[in-house]
Write a protein that binds this DNA or RNA. Structure first.
Length: 415
RNA sequence: GGGGGAAUGUCCCGAGCGGCAAAGGGGGCGGACUGUAAAUCCGCUGGCUACGCCUUCGUAGGUUCGAGUCCUACUUCCCCCA
């Protein structure tokens, strides 16, 4: 699938970003002829993007690297509706306040991946043109180009219809708004390509059709594969929830750990998608067999973390991991929780201590974990639920190390 | 507008003669094995001041010694008729 002449498509396809392209030859020719402008939309459904969006961000990144202009579209308008694509039920409506707050968080991470200087990359918000739409005008100008018959046939809504779940008219309009976005970005900024996850195919195609009908322009679609790990799990989930990109929702250390724990079979694919290492280097790392592939995983984690949080944070995370796992010592980057000195004097119950550290959600969970042999204090297994922690448990650095399982550690620091 | 269904452990699916903290999956977490991997096997997967107590089955009432289970109203969704 790599007969592409343009750097843009060649890189994307070699690195595994391409799932479908609407008109591969046409797009290739356009990208070869000169800089093109493309966009990807990000809805404001949460205060931060998560690992699932990373692949889209990387596509924008490569686009700029290969000489084109990327647009990160903030879905301030479309988030008022909510994309029903491949959802089995309606999501709750976000308030305008939620959306605004979420957008603030989402915008932050893009600066790491894109160079916005001098308009080389753009960030726009579709609220700018969607919020002021006049309903009747919109229906006559845009709505008349859509066939409900056809919209009902899209796979993206099939799930909903098949399961006999209601698809509200509000949600049904999402694809129309997204199509309009594409056309509007074309009109305003000369954008000719929309990229997105494979679940966006239907929505993007609608935009292409609308562009042709309204302005007789040729637009393109490019989608990336839906990301799952080799064992089939959806990307971007951990025990504590999503793999957030913002540091205040997931620490760089935890982010690093997420990638460090990549399955063997995913290492090469992830190196290509999520790092900017040359393919030759990727090939070398991927060739490592057996336990050696752990080295490749460290590089993977390090590169991805460095892109998002900076080289320094990546190295600090790596160092903490090294000390924690390879030396059994204490890394400075481990999460730290402060406790009052008075608590230790009185004797702090172990179960409570684990709850306070945030390692477990309740005393009950702590108790069960203890029964399963998962709790450790200063690397010694806890066997008595009624044991207490006192000042005598503090180590030389005045901290107590609590461990839940082998991978989750928290330092209790006496205040 | 009329008729018939559905809502279950706040991750999901899904059983549930009036005695239920509620079967079974999936997912997740933990343990063993390993390489901080996968696969496999085992355990856990409401809360607590814990051999007991408290809160859970769409919402609000009611019947009953006792209700997820019966009745009434309401909410949301599905199907059929108009």
């Amino acid at each position: 699938m790599s007969g592409f002449k343009s750097d843009f498509l060649r890189v994307l396809s070699e690195r595994g970003f391409v799932h479908q392209i609407s008109d591969p030859e046409g797009l290739d020719a356009a990208a070869l002829k000169g800089p093109i402008t493309a966009y990807i939309g990000f809805d404001a459904t949460a205060p931060s993007l998560h690992a699932g969006s990373l692949i889209q961000i990387m596509m924008l990144h490569w686009m700029q690297q290969t000489g084109h202009k990327p647009i990160a579209l903030m879905g301030g308008g479309t988030s008022m509706v909510g994309d029903p694509s491949f959802k089995d039920e309606a999501r709750k409506l976000l308030t305008p306040e939620d959306i605004e707050r979420n957008l603030v968080g989402i915008r932050r991470c893009f600066a790491r991946y894109l160079d916005f200087d001098g308009g080389k990359a753009l960030m726009v918000n579709n609220a700018d043109w969607l919020l002021g739409i006049n309903y009747l005008e919109f229906l006559r100008d845009v709505g008349r180009h859509f066939s409900v018959n056809r919209m009902l046939a899209f796979d993206s809504v099939k799930l909903r219809l098949d399961r006999e779940q209601s698809l509200s008219f509000l949600e049904f309009n999402y694809m129309i708004l997204q199509a309009y976005d594409f056309v509007e970005l074309n009109r305003r900024l000369g954008c000719v390509l929309q990229m997105g996850g494979s679940d966006q195919w239907g929505n993007i195609i609608n935009g292409i059709d609308l562009g042709r009908r309204m302005h007789d322009v040729s637009l393109y679609a490019l989608t990336s594969p839906l990301l799952t790990t080799s064992s089939g799990a959806k990307m971007g989930k951990t025990a504590n929830g999503a793999v957030w990109l913002n540091a205040d929702q997931l620490s760089p250390y935890d982010f690093w750990q997420y990638w460090r724990n990549t399955e063997d079979a995913d290492v090469e694919r992830f190196l290509k998608l999520y790092t900017t290492l040359p393919l030759s280097e990727v090939a070398r790392l991927a060739a490592l067999g057996g336990a050696e592939i752990n080295e490749a995983k460290k590089v993977l984690a390090g590169e991805i973390t460095a892109l998002l949080h900076g080289r320094e944070a990546a190295e600090a995370a790596a160092e903490t991991a090294r000390r924690t796992f390879e030396e059994g010592a204490l890394g400075s980057d481990l999460p730290t929780v402060a406790i009052a000195a008075g608590d230790l004097e009185a004797g702090l119950g172990v179960l409570t201590a684990f709850v306070r550290a945030g390692l477990v959600a309740s005393n009950g969970e702590a108790r069960r974990a203890l029964d399963g042999g998962a709790l450790k204090v200063n690397d010694a297994a806890v066997t008595d639920a009624r044991a207490t922690l006192t000042a005598a448990d503090l180590n030389a650095d005045r901290v107590i190390k609590l461990s839940f399982g082998r991978k989750k550690h928290v330092l209790l620091k006496a205040g």
